Amino acid sequence: MQNDSVSPRITPEVLAHLRTWEGRSETLDDSITAAPIRGLAAALDCEDDATGNALPPLWHWLYFLPRAPQHELGADGHPRLGGFLPPVPLPRRMWAGGRLQWRAPLRVGDAVQRVSRIASVTHKAGRTGDLVFALVQHEIRRGETLCISEEQDIVYRAPARPGDTSPPPTPAPAEAAWSREIVPDPVLLFRYSALTFNGHRIHYDRPYATAEEGYAGLVVHGPLIATLLLDLLRRHAPEAVVTDFSFKAVRPTIDPHPFSVHGQPSEDGRTIQLWARDHEGWLTMQATARIR
């Protein structure tokens, strides 16, 4: 995705063109291998035996990675759009949330296939400019067995402008049954970017993140925060099997300040409210997990 200094307005004609991507699909094949599991376990400071055990929830994001050649990358480090994803002429892209269901486990040695589809492309005029939303659906199978169904909400935003105001922050809940503090230093952000082959410069290039995309520092990956939320659940309920998970990014988490992840089970213990809070006490991600 290229970061042009002037972003065209999303006219009805532009939106109509982008909507021709609706229904487009791609199929990727991969194998569940041990090395990425061991790498993420090291980055998250947890112990995971890569042999025999089911892949922890959300760790499938270590597979089906983008492999665009270097010459096909845009100025922001993302692959240029116009292939599977629509060529939205807005420079800032964010994975804003998603919903997942686990039907069957994945394990090291499994040959897997992911079928992805662009379900919809919609437009909204926000306070700071145009917003385009792409809903992407994935199905991951092991042979004929459907293992994971996933929806991803991808948001494209207009460039940052002087004087733009952020939405008012939401205070995070003050009390939680489970809590853990995370220090998002550049090493952690680099390791997660490397493990997921994520070239987006907002996660490792401070001058780019601040000068070009208008952030106050390096941005902590939304998928990393979501993974840490379910890692918190696993630490406190290691025998639980996650069946459903939904999450929404509320506010960017910026280094180098520590942030924290929290969980609160329901009375029956089957539904877990999860959230992330920044160093100022603001809610940055909210999520719900269901377990059995």
Rank of each mutant, 00 (worst) to 15 (best):
T122R: 00
L100E: 12
R107W: 04
P91N: 07
V183S: 01
R99D: 08
H138S: 10
M94D: 05
D153L: 07
V121C: 15
T165F: 01
P169I: 01
V183I: 04
M94R: 00
R141A: 06
A125E: 13
L135R: 15
A119L: 11
Y192V: 05
E139R: 04
R107L: 08
L189D: 09
I140K: 02
G97T: 12
V88L: 13
A160R: 03
A194G: 04
P162L: 02
P173W: 00
P167L: 04
L81W: 09
Y192A: 05
P159H: 01
E139K: 03
I182D: 13
R180K: 10
F190E: 03
R92A: 04
Y192I: 13
P186L: 03
T165Q: 05
W95T: 07
I182H: 07
L131R: 06
P167N: 00
V132R: 01
A160W: 02
P159W: 06
R103N: 11
V112P: 13
T122V: 15
V115Y: 03
P184N: 01
L188A: 04
R107G: 06
R180E: 10
A177M: 10
F84R: 08
E181A: 10
G83M: 12
F133M: 12
V112W: 15
A174I: 15
L90M: 09
V136W: 07
L131S: 07
E139A: 02
P89C: 13
Q137A: 08
S149F: 10
Q137P: 12
T170V: 15
S166G: 01
E150V: 15
V132G: 01
M94A: 08
P91D: 01
G97K: 09
P87M: 08
M94V: 15
L189M: 04
G143A: 09
I140V: 14
V183M: 08
D164Q: 05
F133V: 11
Q101K: 15
Q101M: 15
A172Y: 01
A160Q: 02
K124D: 09
V115Q: 10
S116L: 07
Q137E: 10
L188V: 12
P87Y: 00
V88W: 05
R117E: 14
A96P: 04
P86Q: 11
L100A: 04
A111P: 10
R191P: 13
R161G: 02
P186A: 00
A177D: 15
R180I: 08
E144Q: 06
R191N: 05
W178N: 11
R180A: 07
